[in-house]
Amino acid sequence: MQLFGRAYRCELIKLLARKKFIVFLALEVAICGIVLLVQLAVEHVSGLAFNVNLRMMLLGFFISAYIPLVSFMAVCDLFSSEIQDGSLRASLLLPASRFKVYLAKALSAYTVAVVYLFSLFVVTAVLELSFGSTLHGFFESFGSYLLDAIPLAVVILMAVFFNQILRSPTLAMLLCIGVLLAAYIVNIFLPQVGAMLFTSYGQWHNLFIGKALPFLPMMMKVGLLLGYGTVFFSAGYYIFERRDM
């Protein structure tokens, strides 16, 4: 366990050393600020008070597009980029088993995603407070963020799996984006098929908070998500373990 912890910290350090993750975090903060300013401007011009919950309004966009994109970058940096430039050997030559290295890489990419998600929560909450909002529904929105962090793990495991198939980080990134986009399109045009895809639960809080689903259908969706996660994780690990470097 101690060895895994060290390997995990190493992977996180490698990600944090890449400036783009700080830049994208700053961009996330900027988007939140711009959206709030636009909202205030519209309210000022129209004379109407929309009383919008910024935390929940922005969650949809960030959880479906922005954070998956940043996560794909993190996964590609830790897997296909390292395979391509040979630096993966540096991790594999250390006395940590391949399972620990694989898990450490996947978990650090997930950590980045979670940091982005909760930074969004903090930034939007602070912005709302700064502009005189009462932060209504604070705990409900915090619960929504917590719930939405779960399906994000499956999206990352999907990216990890694709990164085992393709050696080129550019191709792996394109494949991840393409599959996510295709799944969203299927969700719109073929909702019955889309319901079988893990991407239809990106905003997972919708199942639990507000108009919650009955127990059995909800458990089916939980099971489906678990199934996708298990398949992506296992298939990805199998390829990673058998790979000759």
Binding site: R9, K14, A17, G86, S87, L88, R89, A90, L94, A96
Partner: peptide, 29 residues
């Protein structure tokens, strides 16, 4: 692997990090 130190083919290094940080990552594990 605890007993092994290896240099295989070209050195496996992180080019965006300093020499010290490369060593620190390995030293950590």
């Amino acid at each position: 692997a605890k007993h092994i130190g290896a240099l295989i083919e070209s050195p496996a290094l992180y080019y965006n990090l300093s020499a010290e940080k490369n060593l620190r990552l390995a030293a950590r594990v």
